[in-house]
């Protein structure tokens, strides 16, 4: 129970233990803990940053999508206009073509009719002459009255 030299021994042991702990035990453990804390803090900051980046990217993508939609609508609008234009032009051209065809048809018909009329006129003259010949066969010869017949034919 009494105080004796053990005290000195224990004091020395205590000092040595504390020094050893201070030099070789505490620093590596503390360094590991602090480094891990830093790693975790860095990781958290990085994840924060990534989240922000993601948000920005999402917003950008949304904007681009909107723009693309606008552009697409624009293009479609233009295409529709162009299509309408083309249709109009084509219709116009077809109309003209038709008019032209109809007109040419008309002239052709006109020409045909004139020709037919001429033919008919000639045949009627011949027929009239033949008829008159037959009527007048007995009285006069054809040559004497031919000027009258010609006049008749011209009046037709």
């Amino acid at each position: 129970m009494n105080i004796n030299a053990t005290l000195i021994g224990q004091l020395i042991a205590f000092a040595v233990f504390v020094l050893f702990c201070m030099k070789f035990v505490w620093p590596p453990i503390m360094a590991a803990i602090e480094e891990r804390q830093k790693k975790i803090a860095d990781g958290l900051a990085a994840s924060d940053r990534a989240e922000k980046d993601l948000q920005i990217a999402q917003e950008k993508a949304k904007e681009q999508l909107k723009e693309a939609k606008y552009q697409a609508a624009d293009i479609i609008e233009q295409a529709k206009k162009r299509a309408a234009q083309i249709v109009d032009q084509e219709t116009e051209r077809a109309h003209q073509e038709r008019e032209k065809i109809i007109a040419s048809g008309h002239t052709e018909i006109e020409a045909e009719r004139n020709r037919a009329k001429e033919e008919l006129r000639k045949q009627v003259a011949v027929l009239a002459v033949a008829g008159a010949e037959k009527i007048l066969a007995r009285q006069i010869d054809a040559a004497a009255q031919s000027d009258i017949v010609e006049k008749l034919v011209a009046e037709l």
Binding site: F20, P27, P28, I29
Partner: peptide, 25 residues
Amino acid sequence: TLGWSIGLGILFLWFFRSIAKKATS
């Protein structure tokens, strides 16, 4: 007293030191 206390102190330091040596972050 000396034996047990120093033995336990060495046990403590040996145990902590062995972990401290391969402490990883």
